[in-house]
Nucleic acid binder design. Structure first.
Lengths: 223, 223
DNA sequence: TGTAATGTTTACCAACCGGTCAAATTATCA
DNA sequence: TGATAATTTGACCGGTTGGTAAACATTACA
């Protein structure tokens, strides 16, 4: 029998499980740091510690590897947003969303960079996911935020751009890590930078979304 | 004579000027959308409308092209931050910095993506620029912001993370354009999104940096 | 105008890339 | 144990890649 996966035998072997895991781990390492086009199967094979044909025994093409990786990672990547709870206290919800996103940037920077690479290059492989599941989830949560604003629990603001702002500020610490470290200098590049970032961002968003009795500046915006 | 540039004749020809311009424009197009490793000289040659060896007549290697491009673009890219004026009104300065950065994201998205691609992949070609000129400039401006905070003109906050937040939120609209469009849907993907973003971000940062007589929430932070 | 310098292209090369093949090795289980 | 299926690898293939060589074309300028 030469068919690799899901052929005659529907069950997956223990070896299959382990090797596919190993390969996807290596693929994450390589794809996240070089992008799809910039990565080679040989590189992934080397990181995974096996030969190229062996990789291709488990995933028939480079694209298949990439797709499996995206599918596996996308779900967990969206978890923080899913936890966003309409019933909770708005300010507390936003604050803990920021914290969760920042923790993901700290603990799973490769996953963040994987998507960043992909989106940056025009999202050729994940367009459907963006326009489908992602948009749907964001639409839902945006509606929650809009309701909070309408009820006067937070300032009136465009919920989509609020979400974008939280995404960008938090993921920045994963995606632009090299730059952040370079600017902060060696002495401030320890793990403490995530604590500093959390403090700053929570403060920024909480105060920035405070309800104002009257516009705090000469700049007025209403939805 | 076979030497392309800066050899015997110190002056640059008119043709050299034009062709190098043409090539760098094409290189920007290609590098910004596929990253360094993912781009090929042939692609750049095609966009530039000339043959591959002709490109290599003006830039001896792919790396040389990339370097010339980076050098050319980096300066203008940092202009908005340079304009940041210590003498001006703090809130107005921050607001207009946001606006300038957002205008750059709108008008020069390829430049933004060029750097994003580079930094995302570990900044293998611009590490020196990050640790040198960039860090120096940011250190300067951070000092200005710190002085403003000390004088009570804006809220006390970590100036570095403030700058990171402004960078990330504004550049997001260039770097993650595909995602932004996908989430906003076709109807909201017109140029109006930059106006919406500007309104949201100015509001967020201005209110978020307002001086508080007393902490507006149960969360306290002092530098 | 003539000629030397500059600019352009065709043909090519070695290294690399994604992927195949067949043979060899290892695991499974009756 | 032995036979069958699953796994692994070295050798290889056609296409692409960064880059070169040399001939050809064009420009600048005395």
């Amino acid at each position: 029998m030469v068919l690799p996966r899901a052929a005659k035998t529907q069950r997956r072997t223990r070896i299959q499980e382990e090797k596919e895991e190993q390969i996807l781990e290596a693929a994450l390492e390589v794809f996240s740091s070089r992008g799809f086009r910039g990565s080679t199967i040989d590189q992934i094979a080397e990181v995974a510690g096996m030969s190229k044909p062996n990789l291709l025994y488990y995933f028939r093409t480079k694209e298949a590897m990439h797709r499996a990786l995206i599918d596996r990672v996308l779900d967990t990547w969206l978890d923080p947003l899913r936890e966003f709870n309409a019933e909770g206290n708005p300010v507390a919800e936003i604050r803990s969303y920021i914290r969760r996103k920042l923790e993901m940037a700290r603990d799973f920077p490769r996953e963040s960079r994987l998507f960043a690479n992909e989106v940056l290059q025009g999202a050729p492989h994940i367009e459907d996911e963006l326009k489908g599941p992602l948009k749907k989830l964001v639409d839902e949560k945006a509606e929650v935020i809009r309701a909070w604003a309408k009820a006067g629990k937070i300032a009136k603001c465009d919920p989509y751009h609020l979400i974008f702002a939280i995404w960008s500020t938090t993921q920045h610490y994963a995606d632009f890590d090299v730059q952040v470290r370079a600017v902060l200098g060696q002495e401030n590049s320890g793990d403490g930078r995530f604590e500093d970032a959390a403090r700053f961002l929570e403060r920024l968003f909480v105060d920035g979304l405070q309800v104002r009795e009257q516009p705090s500046s000469n700049y007025i915006d209403e939805m």
